[in-house]
Nucleic acid binder design. Structure first.
Length: 420
RNA sequence: GUGGGCGUAGCUCAGUUGGUUAGAGCGUCGGGUUGUGGCCCCGGAGGCCGAGGGUUCGAGUCCCUCCGCUCACCCCA
């Protein structure tokens, strides 16, 4: 039996691989327009980083990480998300000292050991943004705008934004107390998962899909009503900025993120039609996290786009892919093939896309290949042409052929290929 | 981790109440044109019918086990 790829690890083949590149290119353009810099970080980190950064009691850390001990006996893990690694790098290199505000992005594979399904793989790709050093609501809105702009440029249809504020640790503590009190009253009726959550991470109960739990939580105290004046004001300003950016949104008071570090603003972009995994981009503010990881007490906000999910949601018809090549050189016979092969680097130096057959094939077969590659023109050179120092140029769209002196070849080719 | 659906050619799929050498379309390669693509015609290659076991004179088809894929729960990008 031949070896197959590991479960949940997928090969990205053309043309889908090209679509993924298009998504990344679009993101880079948007990030560049916002003054972000790219950061590249390792795919593997010490397990402790994720445990501290994401939260000990999150599912990601408890049961989804690819963790193993390396040859030194250290516990290391494949990154399940990018934020912890970026913050580690920022702290380790004291980047915060180089500028009061850091605007960073990265993109690449993440790993989580979950059961694969539509829109969920064990290796998947995220496009990630972090803005560090400010708690300005404008930063929140700008991060949201970047996701919005990228998704719009990619022409995703019917996406919508859900937003909520989780408050700061102070108002969260107040709300947590209210909530705990409420949960005590309904505890016996909660599902088993929520009973566990009630002790470890009560906010997540709002996310439970169990009907009974949903019903019980309708009357539960909302974070919204527990926000301190600062957080309420912050949230209001974020919404104002979103309006000024013309980004429509729905407030969702139940929206909670699965990672422990989020504070204040939290949001999700949802694309219907993706199935159960419909969140294509999500993020939020994490004002205490950098300090928690051993850095200075500076605020931050971030966001990640799920590249494969965007890929699924893309309208494939609207995507423009690589159209084809400019020139196919059809050489007949060994001498002609050798002679014309020297043209390859010369044409390519002019920025032309040029291909020739590796094998000595019939002209028919070579023109077939030219057609398949969607070549604009074919250059036909056999022994006769070689003797007379001419080349036949065949226009592959019109089937028109002209004979041209070899000295005029480049000018004519440039003229024909640059037109459209 | 728990369920449901599905496994036949590179791809999409037919395959009768179990019955000869397992088929089609697309793709691929070649020919029809001694050196001319697309359309058309002809031909070739390509299958341990997911794997193993069982029932039977006989299994792609029926039964069991396992594996894989997929969707959903859960969780999240």
């Amino acid at each position: 039996m031949a070896v197959k790829a590991i479960r949940g690890f997928k090969d990205l083949l053309p043309p889908e691989s090209e679509l993924l590149t298009n998504i990344e290119t679009t993101a880079r353009e948007v990030f560049s327009s916002c003054g972000l810099k790219e950061i590249r970080i390792p795919v593997v980190e010490k397990t402790a980083l994720f445990a501290r950064g994401i939260g000990e009691h999150t599912d990601i850390v408890e049961k989804e990480m690819y963790s193993f001990t390396d040859r030194n006996g250290d516990s290391i893990s494949l990154r399940p998300e990018a934020t912890a690694g970026i913050l580690r790098a920022v702290i380790e290199h004291k980047l915060y000292a180089t500028s009061p505000i850091l605007k960073l992005f990265t993109m690449g594979p993440m790993f989580r050991h979950e059961r694969p399904q539509k829109g969920r793989l064990r290796q998947f790709h995220q496009i990630d943004v972090e803005i560090l050093g400010t708690d300005s609501p404008l930063a929140d809105a700008e991060v949201i705008w970047m996701a919005w702009d990228i998704l719009n440029k990619l022409e995703l249809k019917d996406i919508y934004l859900e937003i909520n504020s989780l408050g700061c640790p102070k108002c969260r503590a107040v709300h947590r107390e209210d909530l705990m009190l409420y949960l005590e009253g309904v505890y016996k009726d909660l599902c088993d998962d929520c009973k566990r959550r009630a002790k470890t991470n009560p906010l997540r109960i709002f996310d439970c899909k169990n009907e009974k739990c949903k019903e019980l939580m309708v009357r539960a105290p909302l974070i919204k009503h527990a926000l301190c004046p600062d957080c309420a004001d912050h949230y209001g300003q974020v919404l104002d900025f979103l309006e000024s950016f013309n980004i429509p949104f729905r407030q969702n008071p139940y929206l909670v993120r699965g990672l422990d570090y989020y504070t204040r603003t939290t949001f999700e972009f949802i694309a219907p039609g993706l199935g159960a995994q419909s969140t294509v981009a999500a993020g939020g503010r994490y004002d205490g996290l950098i300090k928690e990881l051993g850095g200075p007490d500076i605020p931050g906000i971030g966001m990640a786009i799920g590249a494969e999910r965007v890929l699924i949601a893309l309208d494939k018809d609207k995507q423009k892919l690589d159209e084809g090549i400019d020139i196919f050189i059809a050489a007949l016979g060994k001498d002609a093939r050798f002679e014309t092969s020297s043209w390859l680097p010369i044409f390519r130096k002019e920025g032309l896309k040029v291909v020739m057959s590796y094998e000595d094939k019939s002209l028919k077969a070579q023109l077939k290949q030219a057609d398949k590659l969607n070549a604009k023109i074919a250059l036909i050179v056999g022994e006769d042409e070689l003797d007379e120092d001419i080349v036949i140029i065949r226009n592959m769209k019109t089937s028109e052929q002209i004979e041209i002196d070899i000295d005029d070849l480049m000018d004519k080719v440039l003229e024909l290929c640059k037109k459209d």
